[in-house]
Amino acid sequence: MDQSAGKIQIRSLVGPVTVSAESIVRVEKRESPWAEYETQRAQSSDTADGNFDLAAWCDRRGLFAERKRHLQRTVELDADHEGARAALGFEKTDAGWILRKPNGGDGQKSGPRPTAAEGADDDERLAAAARVQWRRQIKGIKSIMLESPIAERVDEGQRKILSISDPLAIEPMSEVLVHGDGACRLLLVDALSKFPQDDATANLSLLFLLDREPAVVDRCARELARRKDPRVASQFRAALYVNNHDGVVARAARGLAVVEDKAAVGDLIQVLTVQRDKWVETPVVGLVGGMCRTFNRQTVASADGRRVSVPPVIAFGRGVLANVANVPQFRNVTVYRTEVLEALKALTGQNFGFDVEAWARWYQEQR
């Protein structure tokens, strides 16, 4: 921890963190990860296996720079150490150990060029390794900074997230931040908005369809409208037909209005209303004590010259001893989708309410 000009710089697993001295409530002194590392290093032997074991210890504690240094030392001591070579991204070929670069080019040694399939497999392996590293780093930023009660630390965490420019960070960033609070998810939208890649567009579309925070949904909507990617509209049209999920259908309808997809009008008309079997609460009036159920023998009498048999009717206490209970009943009901109607009005300038036939006639006349 270094202090100067009222600022304190703290060494953390995700890099140096600078905060004002005033924002620190208390200082608790304990052994840092790097002090533990120095102790562990002093107990390790400077052999290939000793450095490799120490690299694994560093990996478990998030000391990635130290991990890499000991893996490199392992290779210095044993050039054919398979575990260290693999961890550093090398691959053994007939020509020797080759370090594959992310762009598919050969590294330290020249050798036979890989086939297209081998090159694709290698790309996937390198991308997966990079995503693992990003996932660890972003988890650290989230837990140490974004979830901190100190505003300055939160601000620094946000800056670190927004400074990420590697497209391979999109998936781990989305996976980690989507489980945060509303502020975390708003930050995720802002970070994804900087990437033009399909990974970012897909995650923004899913956030728009599924997130529960209105501010997150609104920000996604603005970014998706700005992108003008016709594939977004096609996915929203597909989402209209998600069975038994009216929330997704409503959000998809709103999305189609946001991206101004007039080609979706026919689909929206089809899902404007839907018949569904549902349990509904139905009010049932009964008399306290269940008298109607207890005194239930038929009354036989003569009415207008005919013999009739009717159930008993209890009049005394009606309105006084009566009670209303909600009884669940399984019924076929019509679901009226307001968000779909709003989307239709926005896209067409028309308003036929929930009259599906009127909408269909108008739509047919326009074709």
Results as ranks from 00 to 15, higher is better:
Asp218Pro: 09
Val280Gly: 03
Pro283Gln: 07
Asn296Cys: 10
Tyr241Val: 07
Leu209Pro: 08
Arg251Thr: 06
Arg251Phe: 03
Val300Ile: 13
Arg237Val: 03
Phe316Leu: 11
Glu213Asn: 15
Arg227Ala: 07
Asp304Val: 05
Phe208Thr: 09
Leu204Met: 00
Pro283Glu: 09
Leu210Asp: 12
Gly317Val: 02
Leu187Asn: 10
Arg212His: 08
Val232Met: 10
Lys278Pro: 03
Trp279Cys: 01
Leu206Tyr: 14
Ser193Tyr: 04
Phe208Tyr: 15
Ser205Thr: 15
Pro214Phe: 03
Gly289Leu: 09
Val284Asn: 10
Val242Thr: 02
Val271His: 03
Val320Leu: 15
Leu206Ala: 13
Pro214Trp: 07
Ala301Asn: 09
Arg297Thr: 14
Ser309Gly: 00
Glu260Gln: 09
Gly289Thr: 04
Val324Ser: 10
Asp199Lys: 05
Arg226Tyr: 07
Cys220Ser: 04
Asp246Ile: 12
Gly305Asn: 01
Ala191Glu: 00
Ala191Gly: 06
Val324Arg: 01
Asp211Glu: 05
Cys220Val: 01
Met291Cys: 09
Val265Gly: 03
Arg237Asn: 00
Val258Asn: 03
Val242Arg: 00
Gly266Arg: 12
Gly319Ala: 09
Ala200Trp: 00
Val324Gln: 07
Leu268Trp: 06
Phe295Leu: 12
Ala225Ser: 08
Leu204Asp: 07
Ala239Thr: 03
Ala252Leu: 00
Leu210Trp: 15
Gly305Ser: 05
Arg237Cys: 10
Gly266His: 10
Val313Trp: 08
Asp211Val: 00
Leu192His: 00
Ala257Gln: 02
Lys278Gly: 00
Ala303Val: 14
Ser309Glu: 08
Val313Gln: 10
Thr294Val: 13
Val308Phe: 04
Ala221Asp: 07
Val320Tyr: 13
Leu224Asp: 01
Arg251Lys: 13
Gly290Leu: 02
Asp218Thr: 10
Val248Tyr: 12
Ala264Tyr: 01
Arg251Ala: 12
Pro230Gly: 01
Ala257Leu: 06
Ile314Val: 12
Gln235Trp: 03
Ala238Met: 13
Gln197Leu: 13
His245Leu: 09
Lys228Gln: 14
Gln197Met: 11
Pro311Val: 01
Ser309Ala: 05
Gly247His: 05
Phe195Ala: 04
Asn296Met: 02
Thr201Pro: 04
Pro214Cys: 10
Gly255Thr: 02
Phe316Lys: 09
Arg237Phe: 01
Arg293Cys: 07
Val265Cys: 10
Ala322His: 14
Ala264Val: 02
Gly286Ala: 13
Asp198Leu: 14
Tyr241Ile: 04
Val313Asp: 04
Val216Asn: 05
Leu204Gln: 06
Arg226Ile: 05
Pro283Lys: 08
Asp211Thr: 07
Asn323Met: 13
Asp229Leu: 04
Arg307Tyr: 11
Arg307His: 10
Pro196Lys: 07
